[in-house]
């Protein structure tokens, strides 16, 4: 082997170093629709204070965001569910990293009904049966004799996955569930449908009513509040995550540090979520 031939690779090494060293003040954020309003508020507030930084926020769902992180088309992924081991393995194959998980806020996954609905709370078992298609009439839940119209999210949504895992125990949603492209669409549908039921983040609760959740038939109903979500007594409490492919550095690190600061966490509270810590 003639090592003098290695000179051939010198320009390639320089090119690699230059490409690797390239830096930008533009930060892309993609993922959870549940988090998109909060992420936009964070971005607006941060850009107002840091004019040299441009932050582009888009939704699309947690699964879409994680795919974008693996493909390298976003700097930060927002996700309303933890990253799956298969997704982490893909990240490991592509970047040789395991990804960095940042708990950015807390949410109580809320169950929505129309403001006119007399139903005030629901047990976890009944909620599961509604979404499995076993309970189909409001009369079975103490409401009027009317068919329950079930609204939910599409399968690229982290909220869809969280609800499926924690409420449906991994079983499939009822086929008649109307899949909506975002939490805002779920809220809009339920606000116009007196027989509708839906789920989503607390921050979207406009024009609908959030009902309490009972862990069992005899248990007290718990509504999602700062206290119940904070101490975990609300049965559907969850973290909202941000992921990066490697340890955040430069502008991305500064932005994430700011989100976790009291100022950033205050915005999470204003939007309707709760501080991560």
């Amino acid at each position: 082997m003639n090592l003098s031939k290695l000179k051939f690779l010198a320009p390639l090494g320089i090119a690699a170093a230059l490409m690797g060293a390239s830096n930008t003040e533009t930060i892309t954020v993609k993922g959870s629709d549940t988090m998109v309003i909060m992420a936009q508020r964070w971005a607006e507030a941060y850009m107002a204070k840091h004019p040299g930084t441009s932050i582009q926020v888009t939704g699309g769902g947690s699964g879409t965001g994680i795919s974008a992180l693996i493909n390298g088309t976003t700097d930060i992924c927002n996700s309303s569910r933890p990253m799956k081991s298969a997704e982490r393995a893909k990240l490991q194959e592509r970047y040789a990293t395991l990804g960095i998980e940042i708990k950015s806020a807390k949410d109580g996954l809320s169950v929505y009904v129309n403001e006119a609905s007399p139903v005030k709370d629901i047990t976890l078992d009944n909620l599961r049966d509604v979404y499995l298609g076993k309970i189909t009439n409001w009369k079975q839940l103490g409401g009027p004799d009317a068919k329950i119209i079930v609204y939910g999210r599409e399968n690229n949504s982290g909220t869809y996955a969280f609800f499926k895992d924690h409420v449906l125990s991994g079983k499939d949603y009822v086929a008649s569930m109307q899949s909506m492209p975002g939490t805002a669409a779920v809220v809009n549908a339920v606000s116009k449908d007196p027989n509708g039921i839906g789920y989503g983040g607390m921050a979207y609760a406009k024009g609908i009513r959030i009902i309490g959740i009972r862990k069992a038939a005899g248990a007290a109903a718990v509504e999602p509040t700062a206290a119940t979500v904070g101490n975990g007594s609300y049965p559907l409490s969850r973290y909202l995550y941000m992921y990066t492919s490697k340890r955040p550095s430069g502008a991305v690190k500064e932005y994430i540090d700011w989100i976790l600061s009291p100022e950033g966490q205050a915005i999470a509270t204003q939007v309707g979520y709760f501080p991560a810590r």
Binding site: G20, A21, Q92, T97, I100, S245, R247
Partner: peptide, 15 residues
Amino acid sequence: MTADLSMIPGLAGAK
């Protein structure tokens, strides 16, 4: 074995 070496400026994951 993979390791995140991004604490070193310019570097990212190593395998």
